[in-house]
Design a protein around this nucleic acid. Sequence first.
DNA 1: TTGGGTAAGTGGTCAAACCAATTTGCGATA
DNA 2: TATCGCAAATTGGTTTGACCACTTACCCAA
Lengths: 252, 252
Amino acid sequence: MAPNKVQVPRISDAVAASLERRILEGSLKPGDRLPPERELAIELGVSRPSLREAIQKLASKGMVQSRQGGGTYVTDRLESTFFDPWQDMMGAHPGLREDLLEFRRMLEGQAAEWAAERATDADLTRLTQAFDAMNAAFDANDLERRASTDIDFHQAIGEATHNVLIGHLSAALLRLMQDNIRLNLGELKSIPAAISLLKNQHAAIHTAIVERKPSAARAAAETHIDFVRESLAQSLRSAARRETAERRLNAD
Amino acid sequence: MAPNKVQVPRISDAVAASLERRILEGSLKPGDRLPPERELAIELGVSRPSLREAIQKLASKGMVQSRQGGGTYVTDRLESTFFDPWQDMMGAHPGLREDLLEFRRMLEGQAAEWAAERATDADLTRLTQAFDAMNAAFDANDLERRASTDIDFHQAIGEATHNVLIGHLSAALLRLMQDNIRLNLGELKSIPAAISLLKNQHAAIHTAIVERKPSAARAAAETHIDFVRESLAQSLRSAARRETAERRLNAD
DNA sequence: TTGGGTAAGTGGTCAAACCAATTTGCGATA
DNA sequence: TATCGCAAATTGGTTTGACCACTTACCCAA
């Protein structure tokens, strides 16, 4: 007969859902390596074949990726499905950058507000860790680490909102913008004055969230984006000037 | 290191591909029952665990469906393999629905506000057309048209914001939610009272935008989402009640 | 310091068994 | 003869334990 009755819960489904939840909620981040199958199986209280079936499910959804002998890693289909198409579009239509910044102003303002309202102590701990790491990267002037810790910081805020969409979107959009900036502008000049301002802005966001002041957190986040928007506009103007002076390079 | 080398072929992948081919080529038609795992494993020259991993892959793609003791069947609705990763995730984690609604409340509130501020006359014309079409679909109680015109209406608002991200996201998220509701709840009951309320809410949004009252537009949009959220919660409660009465099904 | 090589770690596969749900079919009963 | 009920066979679900293949990391020798 046709299979239409209610399904008995399958272990592999439950395990897949459990891992999926960890990924969605951020305790397993993109790029992270999963524990070895043998350990994970014990931790989850299932046999290794069952765990493997669950992993196959996630793999077929593109959420994880395994290499024999190497380990199993979290990919991120979630963000890429939403925003891969946007990447080339951003390159083709620079006007989108302004839209993106406007959108981020709303998104991160809301994220900061909710984070200040809802963060658990564990969230705040993680947030502070990310904040410290970011400051260290800024001080060291390590551009690569600056970018990644910046993402971590925003992601920590996103996770503290306890809204999966906010968490993934804010990090994804920041990443999208960083890539786009790098692709189209090269590295932004690191003017000491700007660095100092950025650090102050991040500190204001961090403090407001930790002290649980939602409206202050929102305001600080919006100020931050406004500053980024303005700096970016200036860089673009000078880049355009330079470009015009040097050479004619048409890209659209 | 990052997983970027070429993958060694996995047996379960090959087996999954083989079965998939049989299904796509028609030698396994929708509704057909697969041979027992033990036989199929021998026939394909692999062990049962490997075969099972392959079956899990197909199951997660929605191509087959297994019932303990009953057998494994080729899904008869192959067309619905249009799924996107978020869709089944919403099914697996109902909590996401609440996150999505909360996110939409922010998004559509902002969209309505911006639309009221920025809409051109052409935008307003298109918005009014979409609004009329939606009302007609609601009056005719044509569920299919109701869903599509609803999306059109929200998309028209999104376009009126002149922010590409808002426009695409609000329509995409609405579509995602509609599909999810249809998949997991069946059609929502069309209570005349609710229909009337929905029409009023849409009218309030439309009017506020046309009359260029940003804060009123935001408020109307937020009220709308709040109503949807509440209606959905009620439907879910009654669905849960029904389910509990019928059978005990634990999925966590 | 560097190079190579080995050992440990980790995913991939297999085999055999038992459990749990469903299906089938036989036999007893009306 | 028809039908119902129950038990056995069927079939997917899960576990254990073992071994293979590939990768990583470490250590020792040159």
